[in-house]
């Protein structure tokens, strides 16, 4: 083996092969970018309200307790399908009212139960967050999660 695979050959295989895989990966990512932008997330429009909701989601670091499409911390329920779970995926006003009621009721203060912090959101922000979660719920995620429990 030592005659066939010299250090120089091993190095050349490493550089050449890596460049090849980077090129394949870049092509697939370009194709995926297009697919996401035009197909999998196109069932609801990406409105200013949804964008505002995403900023609210980020500013309060929801991801460090919850998961969204299965990614995040594993301390609190999955929210990628929360509007389906609540039966409000196609009801913007209902989604806002349910989310507003939920957020205002936190923290529950119940002993021995995980506590969601108190978040001071304006009506506009809560509406944005509800729209963001509805928008995410409408993404084609290859039918994940397996059931409404998330």
């Amino acid at each position: 083996m030592s005659e066939i695979l010299t250090k120089t050959r091993a190095r050349n295989v490493f550089y050449g092969g890596s460049l090849f895989f980077v090129a394949v990966f870049a092509a697939l990512v370009a194709n995926s970018h297009h697919y996401i932008a035009t197909t999998s997330t196109s069932s609801l429009p990406l409105t200013d309200e949804v964008t505002l909701g995403k900023r609210v989601w980020e500013a309060n670091s929801c991801i460090n307790c919850h998961t969204l499409h299965g990614e995040g911390a594993y301390f609190a329920p999955e929210l990628g399908n929360v509007m389906t779970r609540w039966g409000l995926a196609d009801d913007a006003e209902g989604a806002y009212e349910a989310l507003d009621g939920w957020i205002k009721a936190q923290p529950s203060g119940i002993e021995g139960r995980r506590q969601m912090p108190h978040f001071d959101l304006t009506e506009e922000e809560t509406r944005g967050l509800a729209e963001f979660l509805r928008w995410a719920d409408h993404t084609d995620t290859q039918s994940w999660p397996p059931n409404d429990a998330g």
Binding site: A10, F14, S18, V24, F25, Y35, T41, T141
Partner: peptide, 23 residues
């Protein structure tokens, strides 16, 4: 390191199953 990059670059795909990326 060749084995690491040959598998690891396209291995990124295992994070793209359920986030809205193609099947």
């Amino acid at each position: 390191v060749a084995l690491a990059l040959f598998s690891g670059i396209l291995g990124t795909g295992h994070h793209y199953y359920w986030i809205g990326a193609p099947g």
